[in-house]
């Protein structure tokens, strides 16, 4: 029984790493109805920016919570700039183009980042410096809790609450929702649509950057293609929870993380990656809009 609860804890901690990525996915989709395939690769860049920052400032020589915060801030700032540039140069020129063009461009941006990453960083896996090494584990009734797991979990739930607050309780959030509803009408109402869309990308990329550092700290092997699989899984988790819905993205991620751990523990480890999509298909058959999603008539 203790072993089962250990699997649950591990599942929640894996789920929280997916949640960190899924939040950015779902936010960009919520505003633009655009699946930003490059999101997983911005996550990868976050990890690399974190790595170079840590080495440049020699943060790994004195691991501390402050060192982690500096690394996180650097990665978030770097990814904010990258997110801004991607939106400005890849997506904005296509604002009035058919949606399929934007989708193909997103795939293109994703491949561009992956392969430029291989040229710039080198293709072999790198070690992510340990900028924060919490000592010791907490044992609760025989179940082992690693402080890093707890931090990832707390940060993903906190970010979810902050985003929820920003989107529903602030003027900025109202503008976001207006643009999401109809961006032409929003611009007639005096909302600077382009700036709001830019900001959405910047926010999404900041989340991806934070996720990059936090995930790399728990799984310290990073390479330019590391964003592909977590990106796809986080996307599946976001769809599962109801894409565009912030709480849904986090719930979907926890379901996916738990399901993966349990199938590896009690079933067939080989099928862990396939499982993400089997769950996705099953839930979408029953609830086409996802767990928390509201069905919206598609305008073609």
């Amino acid at each position: 029984m203790v072993e089962f609860f250990q699997h649950i804890v591990n599942g929640l901690s894996l789920g929280s790493t997916y949640a960190l990525i899924a939040l950015g996915y779902t936010m960009v989709f919520g505003v633009l109805q655009l699946i930003n395939f490059a999101h997983g690769d911005v996550f990868m860049l976050g990890a690399f920016i974190g790595m170079y920052t840590a080495y440049a400032l020699a943060l790994h020589t004195s691991p501390s919570l402050a060192a982690l915060m500096i690394t996180l801030l650097a990665a978030m700032a770097g990814c904010a700039i990258i997110g801004f540039l991607i939106e400005r140069f890849a997506y904005r020129p296509l604002r009035n183009a058919p949606r399929i063009n934007v989708l193909i461009t997103a795939v293109g941006v994703s491949l561009f980042l992956e392969f430029s990453g291989q040229i710039i960083f080198g293709a072999d896996p790198k070690f992510f410096p340990q900028v924060y090494q919490p000592q010791g584990d907490w044992m609760i009734a025989g179940v082992r809790l690693n402080p890093l797991q707890v931090i990832n979990f707390t940060i993903s739930v906190t970010l979810m609450l902050v985003l929820q607050f920003v989107v529903f309780k602030t003027r900025l959030g109202r503008a976001l929702r207006a643009v999401s509803f109809n961006h032409e009408l929003a611009s007639l109402m005096g909302i600077p649509t382009n700036r709001i869309i830019s900001l959405t990308f910047v926010l999404g990329s900041i989340l991806a950057g934070a996720a990059g550092v936090l995930v790399a700290l728990s799984y310290p092997k990073i390479d330019p293609l590391m964003g592909i699989m977590p990106g796809i899984k986080a996307f599946a988790a976001a769809v599962l929870g109801g894409i565009g819905n912030i709480t849904g993205a986090v719930i979907g991620s926890f379901i996916l993380g738990l399901a993966e751990q349990l199938i590896v523990a009690y079933g067939a480890p080989t099928y862990r990656d396939a499982l993400a999509f089997v769950i996705l298909i099953l839930i979408l058959l029953v609830k086409p809009a996802g767990i928390m999603g509201v069905h919206r008539a598609e305008k073609v």
Binding site: E3, Q6, H7, N10, G11, S13, L14, Y219, K221, M226, M229, E260, Q261, L262, V264, A265, P269, T270, R272, D273
Partner: peptide, 12 residues
């Protein structure tokens, strides 16, 4: 599977 990053379930 080669390329996985999380092995905690097996190791537990």
């Amino acid at each position: 599977s080669n390329g996985d990053t999380d092995f905690k379930a097996q190791l537990t």
